[in-house]
């Protein structure tokens, strides 16, 4: 049993420490995530070169001591660009996932708790969204709304929304008749309060797994959109564009242009996917034994 005399914050910290110690993979994932966050926050200050400054005399140099990841066709330092791009890519994916989490949770919770026609209508709308090939839908939304970073966020949020709404709906639905919900009614709690305070928090553990998978997916989606020329525009540093531009040079042997941004992209997705179990364990009180 946990020590009940310590403050909640210390208990939470102890629990965090336990989750990290318990599973080395979780620890690795959180360490990598911390590294990515640092890159996103301080990237521009850390990198040796200006990511946008071109230098034609140093174009297409292979990796070396002065240019760790080599230079691209305009002589820009690939390492600096890869690091600086972290901020943009993380922002897009986190913002998109946060939006779909919030709106998906609200819609799903309402549908799951009250049911009836609201539930039926919402489900059909979500079915419609899911019936589209999601990437094509995202392309369509960005193309229709305009070629900006914000619209990539909205498009990614919309195509992710059904997954959250479905999950929350199911989790809320199985608990709406639970004993503790009846007990809350006896305690004079209103429906909204029961939904927000009693039922929804219980849906968090599976949601965390969903979030972590979705973060990776959202980052791929954003990179994919910029790969085909939507959203982020050159010369801005972004992993998707860098892979797209670098792809032209692989044939001629300049592999480093596409490899390094691709590697970072892969590692980011990898990190997010590995974080899922750890996040779930963190928000599940049953783990605090």
């Amino acid at each position: 049993m946990s020590d009940t005399t310590t403050s909640p914050r210390r208990q939470a910290l102890a629990h965090f420490a336990y989750v990290m110690r318990d599973n080395p993979v979780t620890f690795l994932a959180f360490a990598m995530f911390a590294a990515f966050v640092l890159m996103a926050l301080f990237g521009p200050a850390l990198v040796p070169y200006d990511p946008l400054a071109s230098d034609a005399s140093k174009a297409l140099q292979p990796p070396s001591a002065s240019h760790w990841f080599g230079t691209d066709n305009l002589g820009r330092d690939v390492f600096s660009r890869v690091i600086v791009a972290t901020r943009l890519d993380l922002t897009i994916s986190v913002a998109a996932v946060a939006l779909s989490f919030v709106f998906g949770s609200i819609l799903g919770a309402v549908a799951g708790y009250w049911g009836g026609w609201l539930d039926a209508v919402l489900n059909r709308v979500l079915d419609t969204i899911m019936a589209f090939p999601l990437f094509v839908l995202a392309m369509g939304i960005v193309a229709a709304l305009g070629n900006t970073v914000e619209n990539i966020v909205y498009a990614t949020a919309i195509i992710n929304l059904p997954f959250y709404a479905r999950l929350v709906r199911a989790e809320v639905n199985i608990r709406r008749e639970a004993g503790f919900v009846q007990a809350a009614k006896l305690s004079g709690e209103s429906d909204i309060s029961i939904l927000a305070r009693q039922i929804f928090p219980n849906a968090l553990p599976p949601m965390m797994v969903q979030i972590s998978l979705n973060l990776g997916w959202a980052i791929l989606n954003a990179a994919g959109l910029s790969f085909i020329g939507l959203g982020v525009r050159p010369p801005e540093a972004e992993w998707g564009i860098m892979v797209a531009e670098g792809a032209n040079f692989i044939i001629s042997g300049e592999w480093w242009l596409a490899l390094f941004p691709g590697l970072w992209l892969m590692m980011a997705v990898f990190t997010f996917n590995l974080m899922g179990d750890g996040l779930r364990d963190l928000v599940d009180p049953r783990r605090r034994t």
């Binding site: 004993g179 009846q182 007990a183 209103s190 219980n202």
Partner: peptide
């Protein structure tokens, strides 16, 4: 739930585990 008589009628549930919010 908001009726003044709510406090006068209470219940103990069959399944104690189910009737307590795990969080």
């Amino acid at each position: 739930a908001r009726h003044p008589r709510r406090r006068d009628i209470q219940m103990v549930f069959q399944d104690a585990t189910d009737s307590l919010n795990p969080r």
